[in-house]
Design a protein around this nucleic acid. Structure first.
Lengths: 264, 264
DNA sequence: TCGGAGACTTTGTCAAGACATATGGACATA
DNA sequence: TATGTCCATATGTCTTGACAAAGTCTCCGA
């Protein structure tokens, strides 16, 4: 290093990081500059160039080195702070807290999760039809006047072993999937490619014992422990696009959450 | 309404909101301006002045009305967008998506949650002592050289009925609570007032059947369904401050999550 | 040796302005 | 009628500049 040993070294453990040669920007790209910076910092944290505890140089110098304005650099850093990867302290600087990717618990379905893990999910479609909606279903979908709903009932497996039994209601007309499409892709994927902008979901996670029907469908003994999840999904107009109640074999599945203390 | 019917009305349903008389700012307050705006918008959404679907006036006018700069107003709006309350679309405007408070799933303990709901949680402290740490515990706390740990075992009840059995390990020296303190306050509260800055947690939620011991402590029959949660909590230096494994009576408790699709 | 005042560093907050780009409607055209 | 083009609108991105406030460190004095 060309850095002279400073007598008042705050950071014997980690020298402040110099992004000069590490981060390359393409001003012509349609990708915003702050996003380019943010992603490359993220990558540097993930692959160990920026280990936990490492200090970033101060924002002013960073901006100068990258030939960007300070707000732009701040915006890049802010996204990583929101993800819980960095911590800022006034008068101190910015430090890497954790290397592990703390997924901020995005909107993703079981299918997405399994596919992301490399396991290839399989599906059996038991029910996929449009039927009349009674008042109770209309209330679940928060659409008082609703008369027709699509009902889904599927079994999700991996490695030939059942994993979950999934029931869903969707307002009629949102998507019109074939059984094949339901087998090939997850519900969220189908919704997204139909132009639905998924925005938020409320989930309720509990547990109960397997009934006779559960047991048979999931290949568990009656009375086995099951994980249950009810979910209401909203699009960005506030409309309910899906209500689901799922049960998972507790012996094969658990929910994994990463929480972060975002900006107060 | 005094609004004249505009011939090219984009928003027959909701006129754009005029914050002129609604939002009052105190430039002398130590509270940042963007935070004042953000909070008052949040309040307006919660109490119905800004119903779901309502459109905010455009940022430039908003800034002019509030006598603030556009970046400041944007920052205020951005926090609400991140919370999933607002949706922005370029060329269109900013709209309220949902009125319900979508808590972004903060770092909170069972005690906080129960206290927030008004129910007064009670505790029985079964174990509260410092003991030798074996290699396995040290690994759970991600502190290889650790030799001493504090172990906690508590039962949390509400209304005289057991709710959860909670086991925890903490590196020795972080907090030194008396049994009384553990009864009066939650673990996270104790940590925070000891100056620990909680930053992130990883949780694993599953289910299993009650063992004999579970059953007796929780007043459930053996073989009842239990909700399990393992948790590792980190402070903002990346250090593990707590590892816990808890079991909840599925008949009395479920996890409630609100997910939001933050900025991509 | 210990403790406090003050300087310095670094992030936090805010302003004003400029240009880019996606959206949706109006208009003109085939 | 259907389709393509243009334009107005509103957010997205980025820059420059300035001051405030919170930590940290050093140095001085008791």
């Amino acid at each position: 290093m060309s850095t002279p040993p400073s007598s008042s070294g705050v950071d014997v453990t980690h020298p402040a990081w110099d992004p000069g040669r590490e981060i390359v920007l393409d001003p012509g790209s349609p990708e915003p500059l702050y996003h380019q910076v943010s992603q490359q910092l993220h990558a540097a944290i993930e692959d160990g160039r920026l280990p936990a505890g490492a200090r970033l140089g101060n924002e002013v110098d960073l901006a100068a080195n990258l030939r960007l304005s300070r707000p732009t650099v701040r915006q890049a850093i802010q996204t990583l702070v929101n993800q819980g990867l960095l911590v800022r302290r006034r008068g101190v600087g910015t430090q890497v807290v954790r290397t592990k990717v703390a997924r901020p618990l995005r909107l993703s379905s079981l299918f997405d999760d399994l596919a992301g893990l490399g396991g290839k999910p399989e599906s059996v479609v038991l029910v996929n039809e449009v039927e009349d909606a009674d008042a109770k279903v209309a209330e679940l979908l928060e659409a008082p006047g609703l008369t027709r709903v699509r009902r889904l009932k599927r079994i999700r497996s991996t490695g030939g072993e059942p994993l979950a039994l999934m029931n869903n209601y969707l307002p009629d007309g949102i998507i019109d999937p074939t059984d094949d499409e339901l087998r090939e892709r997850g519900l969220y994927q189908l919704l997204r490619s139909a132009g639905v902008r998924l925005h938020a979901a409320e989930q309720n996670i509990g547990a109960r014992l397997a009934t006779e029907e559960d047991a048979e469908l999931l290949d568990e003994p009656p009375g086995a422990a099951l994980l249950t999840m009810q979910r209401t999904t909203y699009d960005d107009t506030g409309r309910v696009v899906e209500y689901g109640w799922h049960v998972y074999r507790a012996s094969r599945y658990a929910f994994n959450l990463s929480l972060t203390n975002g900006p107060q």
